[in-house]
Design a protein around this nucleic acid. Structure first.
Lengths: 163, 163
DNA sequence: CGTGATAACTTAGCACACATAACTATTAGG
DNA sequence: CCTAATAGTTATGTGTGCTAAGTTATCACG
């Protein structure tokens, strides 16, 4: 891909993705189902099988503390459970509860209903294009998320402003 | 689009979009260019021409207070300016400053560079699929964002100022 | 001309998803 | 044992979103 093409795709992504995010978040919020979009993915992953915190964090591409906090929030909602595995007492396995599965099911239907509204006017060819584009995004970003960023901390003491 | 198809697309969107968001945000953050993704779009819109707050809010699909706060943050960074127009002294026009244009330019290059990394392995057909998919998303969500959820509950006589 | 509704913003208070830095607890290696 | 590495948690701060409740300016109308 040429530099020009990368730039074009970059602009599109930076413009469109946040819009989609906001729209989805607003829909879920107004529906009263508040499991922030992030939690949905989490429940999906965990419903396949339990995972340890570190794995979850790297799967979702977030830091460990963030994942720890997210899980705490979900524990409070009763969606997941922190379990101690046999061997290594440092690790915490996260499991979905029955409540969590129900929530996943409910949110899935809710999101489906709302997305169905906005996707309704989409004809079949467009839908195929959508799916194909999403597939490309998945492939590209799923692989890059596993390598969480080579964290070069702040080039030249560029502190975040302050006046 | 059938219900099944909608559900499939919904799952994909809910899984992929947040991932992409996080990845992009992480890239910008680690590069020290902190203009949160939302601010980038804002600068883009404003660099075309000044806008009033209300228009910005509805263009981006967020509430007025949210936009007001975002603009305040950007004003502190020196990227935009609140200007009073001629006619109506209630409105506030937001204009990009030279600093803001420079920041936009810089962030654009930065995002381009980082996205170029992850998009590098994408071949031409896949890139076309990506663009096509983004186009569909844009069309679908741009129109639904303009109608931010029918949340006017102040229909009749519900006076805002109780005394 | 006043008076009350409406429009455009701002402020205040809240929730959450991120981050880093700095801790605790456990395990592994010497 | 003692140290280094690993797994999580807590503390703190920022960004982004919301609603509710002001403030100020404009307009419509009697």
């Amino acid at each position: 891909m040429t530099r020009t093409q990368a730039r074009e795709s970059a602009r599109d992504i930076l413009e469109i993705i946040p819009l989609v995010m906001r729209t989805i978040a607003a829909e879920l919020r107004s529906a009263g189902e508040l499991p922030a979009p992030a939690h949905f993915g989490l429940l999906s992953v965990l419903s396949a099988r339990p995972r340890m915190l570190t794995d979850l964090a790297s799967l979702q591409g977030v830091s460990l503390p963030t994942m720890s906090n997210s899980i705490s929030a979900m524990v409070e909602r009763g969606w997941v459970r922190r379990a101690a595995p046999e061997g290594d007492r440092r690790v915490v396995m996260i499991e979905v509860t029955a409540t969590g599965r129900a929530a996943l099911e409910r949110v899935g239907r809710c999101a489906e209903a709302h997305l169905a509204d906005v996707l309704a006017p989409v004809d079949l060819p467009s839908r195929r294009r959508l799916q194909a584009g999403l597939g490309v995004l998945r492939k590209v970003f799923a692989s890059s998320a596993s390598a969480p960023a080579a964290r070069r901390r702040n080039r030249h003491g560029r502190r975040p402003y302050v006046s």
